[in-house]
Amino acid sequence: MNADEWLRVFAAELHQRRVAVDAARHVVAEAATHLREGGGDPWLVFGSPQAYAATIVESIGTAPAPRPGPVRLDARGITKRYGRRTVLRDAALTVRAGQIAAVVGANGCGKSTFLRICAGLISPDAGEVTVSGRLGYCPQQGGTADFLLPDEHFVLVGAGQGLTREPARQAGRAAARQLGWEADRDVPARHLSGGTRQKLNLTMSTLAAPDVLLLDEPYQGFDQGSYVNLWDQLVRLRDEGRAIVVVTHLLNQLDRVDVVLDLTSSAK
């Protein structure tokens, strides 16, 4: 395990132990500086990432675990068939304010279909979804306009919420910065890399400050740093009281979520 990998595992450990996001970022930066300037194997300098994270938690404490709030999304008895094939059978999910839910399962088990039903984009054959508050949705791909600039996407989405141009632009750029992306360059969406385009996609879904955020594998094309930024952002939004549902097949992040819905058994 090299220094970068050690730092990544260390950062994940701090998050898992609910160290406040800003404090964790500060501690990781300090450790990185120490390793860069002093050199040496991080295992010899700090020990295992788990043990060092435990020491840090003892020293600075953890952020109080936010209490889950009222129910924001309640999906019950969701059944969906495509022809003779039943993709979802009686699927259910309840997510409260201040919770992250992960929807997992094998390829083709209906994860994206479930999310699109929750967003009201397609109808189920049976079941109901109740949403409390404003809904945001980030599709797995698409959902952006090839020839528009990032700022123009922010203005377009912001106008839907009654935002005027400048506040919409500022809100979009601020949300993009949380993902480690400076969105102030005049580059059409079609010239953005796959990962940056996905950041634009994600930024559009968080721009309107939704109470319920539905994300369909939002990390497509992300590098390691962007992936960490994404989860930092999700944890921050959760701590602000948002209810978040993430479709994922990366099981290594399940320790950072509060609710898991496994749809594998739902598919027939």
Binding site: A119, G120, Y137, G142, G143, D146, V157, G160, Q161, L207
Partner: peptide, 15 residues
């Protein structure tokens, strides 16, 4: 045709 995928999310955004 180009706006097909964008429009549902604009609908969710308040349009």
């Amino acid at each position: 045709s180009g706006a097909r995928e964008l429009e549902p999310r604009l609908r969710l955004a308040g349009y």
